[in-house]
Design a protein around this nucleic acid. Structure first.
Lengths: 230, 230
DNA sequence: AAGCGTAACGGCACTGCGTGCCATGATTCA
DNA sequence: TGAATCATGGCACGCAGTGCCGTTACGCTT
């Protein structure tokens, strides 16, 4: 298919060109290296003009992780449409799922992207910045939730950073293992374990110790008067 | 001072040129905007050639935060020379101090830099990547510490991300307030409060939940057979 | 004091990214 | 069939970053 025959394509054609460009970029980056691959090379490999490449991607780096904006928007939608009574932890899980979806769509391509972002410093830094967008989004939401707490800002920052880091750890472990189909459940479980490590509600955390003490005393008191059942 | 008279300067001269370039860059970025300022403009404002700019900074962005490598190296030295018995929290505080030092050296310039990284998306993303270097450094160290723990990786990721986020929150709050001299102590205190929100030793944390569960079950069991005391 | 090696500099040319502009060809709709 | 629209390719341009080279100032030796 020459460039001429591709002119004036439909929306379906656009999606196809986009896929071709991503595939060409990822392949060339891994074969020749990121720095030694020019946009001309990518465009030529995909059978389009150089100018067209920049109509699909804002930059050369964008061809590696072009779905970031979409994923971020979806995650933002989760927070915006969330009911105020939904626990923050559950919300984080739901938002995390929307991000997972982006990767499970095409596991093989996701692994290639992961390797690139792992090996090429420029792409690694770019991904750090992308991930920080999620952190900011989540932290901003939490800050609103914790507005009444005395250390609300700090709690929001800590929990936001921790959850995003855990999400990323789980995701990267899955990708590093080659993104096996039966590994996504372990990935999800791993992500969920972050909840155990988070500081709970301040009143709740402090209360937890108090409750523990109170229960211990109650048990001691009761067991002193009554033999345990069974 | 013309370019000709500046040739063949000493090491002291180099530091001076470096300062001039940073000052020129920060000033111009804030006056005309980052995108509308070229490297030629910066070099001309500092009285040196364009080629010389790139002998002092790897990129245009580097002129805004040129001390990142130094700060990262100092923080790394803290971890490398740390004794194995020093608590991780104390270590984080010490490493955080070395980073604070970079900013307290020239508070006014630090504020200008903060505003730039706050306003210009490109610089913001770049700073996200820089901060992530600290996170990776700290997380890597913690992973070694928690190597024996079952969820060591996750704990390292969570604590590393949380501590760096807290450090950044405190630092940015201080900078946003104009970096007052008497505000650094509040900044330090704020940073230290992160320790209260961190997950403790896994045995401790899990134990707390386990104890709670066990006690609750005991109470239910006992209350089923015996009317509550009092 | 003269000479020499070194270090820093400025200028030039080049590659490559990203963008504005415009003509061209395909598609869709009236 | 003709007009409007959309996507494309090509061209030119500005700017970032790099390699190369000639030049100049400094420090050190003799």
């Amino acid at each position: 298919m020459t460039g001429a025959t591709r002119r004036g394509r439909s929306a379906q054609g656009r999606a196809e060109v986009r896929r071709d460009l991503v595939a060409a970029a990822v392949t060339l980056f891994r074969e020749r290296g990121y720095e030694d691959t020019t946009v001309d090379d990518i465009a030529a490999a995909a059978g389009v003009g150089r100018r067209t490449f920049f109509r699909y991607f804002r930059s050369k780096e964008d061809a590696v992780s072009p779905d970031h904006e979409t994923a971020l928007a979806r995650a933002a939608e989760v927070f915006e449409t969330a009911h105020a009574t939904e626990p923050a932890a559950a919300l984080a899980l739901r938002a995390g799922e929307t991000v997972f979806d982006i990767y499970t769509d095409d596991p093989h391509l996701s692994v290639e992207r992961y390797r690139l972002t792992h090996d090429v410093p420029v792409l690694r830094d770019r991904e750090s910045a992308s991930i920080d967008h999620y952190r900011r989004l989540f932290t901003r939401y939490l800050r609103g939730r914790f507005a009444d707490d005395p250390d609300g800002d700090l709690r929001a920052a800590v929990i936001g950073a921790a959850v995003v880091a855990a999400h990323n750890l789980a995701l990267r472990a899955w990708l590093a293992a080659g993104a096996p189909e039966d590994g996504m459940e372990a990935c999800r479980l791993r992500f969920r374990r972050v909840a155990e490590m988070l500081p709970g509600e301040p009143a709740h955390t402090n209360g937890l110790h108090a409750v523990t003490r109170r229960l211990e005393q109650a048990v001691v008191r009761l067991e002193r008067t009554t033999p345990p059942a069974q």
